[in-house]
């Protein structure tokens, strides 16, 4: 299995299938992260595609001071945010999922019933939607994408100390929102 640097070299030497391997490697991860970030699978789909296209066209400018995924994520993040500004979704992921009864692929989780899991996930999404953009981004990078602090710092272009404090504040904000959601649910 070739590493990213080798694939990038081959892509720069004209082998488009090498870049195809990078797409295959990262597309699902990027899509999942962006879908949670912007709250729309359609927007995420378009943003991921745009990001890969832009990455390929600008591959020569990739300086390799960070990992390829970090660089790609930054492109995708900007694409997703600008797309969301242009095409603000009026029906959210959760509304559609509630309507269709479809949930994305389940992770292995606690032995709750499927209905309970769906309800809880809907509550978390509702709470997450109320969190500020900057806090949501850092929460998703850490909890959904499982990025270490160092990578989050690279992606968001912030010092690690800022990441640490922002992540903590984001968790507190989400905690408060979750309390609100649970209370609304009870009443």
């Amino acid at each position: 299995m070739k590493d990213d640097a080798q694939l990038i070299d081959e892509a720069l030497n004209g082998d488009s299938s090498a870049f195809g391997q990078l797409v295959t490697k990262y597309q699902d991860r990027l899509y999942n992260t962006l879908a949670h970030l912007v709250g729309s699978t359609d927007l995420a789909y378009d943003a991921v595609q745009d990001a890969f296209v832009q990455a390929l066209v600008k591959l020569e400018t990739f300086e390799r001071s960070s990992s390829f995924y970090t660089w790609l994520y930054r492109i995708a993040f900007n694409q997703a945010i600008s797309r969301r500004r242009r095409e603000k979704p009026l029906v959210s992921v959760e509304q559609v999922q509630e309507a269709s009864g479809h949930e994305p692929v389940d992770r292995c989780g606690p032995p709750e019933s499927k209905l309970e899991q769906q309800e809880r996930a809907a509550q978390v999404r509702a709470a997450l939607a109320k969190v500020s953009d900057e806090h949501r981004a850092i929460l998703i990078l850490r909890e959904v994408d499982d990025c270490p602090y160092e990578q989050i710092a690279e992606i968001l272009d912030l010092p690690i100390g800022t990441i640490r404090s922002r992540l903590h504040r984001a968790r507190l904000q989400l905690r408060d929102q979750l309390k609100g959601v649970f209370q609304e649910d009870v009443t």
């Binding site: 597309q27 899509y31 949670h36 390929l56 389940d106 992770r107 899991q117 978390v124």
Partner: peptide, 26 residues
């Protein structure tokens, strides 16, 4: 608990491979 809540979110999976469309659009 907050972390566990976030991790309970389901994972979205792409409906198809983006590779052909990306290369063509590029």
């Amino acid at each position: 608990s907050v972390r566990s809540s976030m991790q309970s979110l389901a994972r979205h999976k792409l409906p198809e491979d983006l590779c052909p469309a990306v290369l063509r659009r590029a």
